[in-house]
Amino acid sequence: MKPVKPQQFAQGLQNFLNAIDDTNAKVAPFYSKLRTALNDKTLSEMSDLDFKAILAEFMDANDGYQRAADHLSTLAAPVQLLGLKSNLVDYFRAYVAATKDMTASLETNSKTVDLKKFSRSEQDQDDLMQKINHTVNRILTVPGLRG
């Protein structure tokens, strides 16, 4: 097996991060709208169409995150980064599961949100994103990766 050059891995990692940024940017307004309605206790005033649009966007985001996780898991890494890459894959797969939990907390028929499940997912996503960012930052400090 031919060794992986750090620059090759860096490019694949950048593609992964770009995909996450794109998905985040697309879903953020829908999340904000839902979060505002929950905070203001105005969810019942939201139209069924808006609620369904939020759910659909969450589902699309779940798909985007899953594709990114699949890409990341198949990304070849230099030997010195195998452990960090493995951690990153694990953290991101857990993040994907947390986003799916958030989506599952929305009930379209009754236009309700399981607040306990939703809040737990928010906390899990925040915690996991900190771990993901920390791991990415550690990866980026490896000599030869930014070259």
Score class of each variant (00 low, 15 high):
Gln80Arg: 09
Ala53Ser: 06
Phe118Ala: 07
Ser73Phe: 00
Thr108Arg: 12
Lys131Asn: 09
Thr103Arg: 09
Leu84Pro: 08
Pro3Phe: 06
Asn39Thr: 11
Ala77Pro: 08
Asp114Pro: 09
Asn62Trp: 04
Tyr91Asp: 08
Asp48Pro: 01
Gly64Phe: 03
Leu49Gln: 06
Leu13Met: 09
Leu82Ser: 06
Leu145Asn: 04
Thr108Trp: 06
Lys26Leu: 15
Leu34Asp: 01
Asn39Ala: 10
Leu106Asp: 07
Lys85Trp: 04
Lys33Gly: 00
Thr141Gly: 13
Asn15Leu: 10
Val89Arg: 03
Ala61Ser: 13
Pro6Lys: 12
Pro3Ser: 10
Asn87Glu: 08
Ala25Trp: 01
Phe9Asp: 03
Pro6Val: 05
Val27Leu: 13
Leu72Gln: 03
Asn39Asp: 14
Tyr91Met: 01
Lys100Asn: 09
Lys52Arg: 08
Asp63Ile: 10
Lys33Gln: 07
Arg67Gly: 09
Leu106Phe: 05
Gly144His: 01
Gly12Met: 01
Asn133Met: 14
Asn137His: 13
Ser73Trp: 03
Met1Arg: 12
Gln14Val: 09
Lys111Glu: 01
Lys116Asn: 06
Arg67Cys: 06
Phe51Glu: 00
Met129Pro: 07
Gln7Tyr: 12
Leu140Lys: 15
Asp127Pro: 06
Thr23Tyr: 02
Gln123Leu: 07
Phe51Asp: 00
Val4Ala: 03
Leu34Gly: 00
Val4Arg: 02
Pro3Thr: 10
Ala77Trp: 12
Ser73Pro: 01
Ser86Thr: 05
Met46Glu: 01
Val89Met: 03
Arg93Lys: 15
Ile139Arg: 05
Thr141Val: 15
Ser121Glu: 00
Leu81Arg: 04
Gln123Arg: 12
Met59Gln: 15
Ala97Leu: 10
Pro143Asp: 14
Met102Ile: 02
Leu34Ser: 01
Leu128Phe: 07
Val136Arg: 11
Lys33Cys: 01
Thr36Ala: 08
Ala19Pro: 02
Ala77Thr: 06
Lys111Thr: 05
Val4Phe: 02
Tyr95Arg: 02
Thr135Gly: 03
His134Gln: 15
Leu43Gln: 05
Ser73His: 05
Ser32Met: 11
Asp70Lys: 14
Pro29Thr: 04
Asp50Met: 00
Ile54Thr: 00
Met1Lys: 15
Pro78Thr: 13
Leu81Gly: 05
Gly144Ser: 04
Asn24Val: 02
Ala68Arg: 06
Ser119Arg: 07
Thr108Gln: 10
Pro143Cys: 07
Ala76Asn: 13
Asn62His: 00
Asp60Gly: 14
Met46Gly: 00
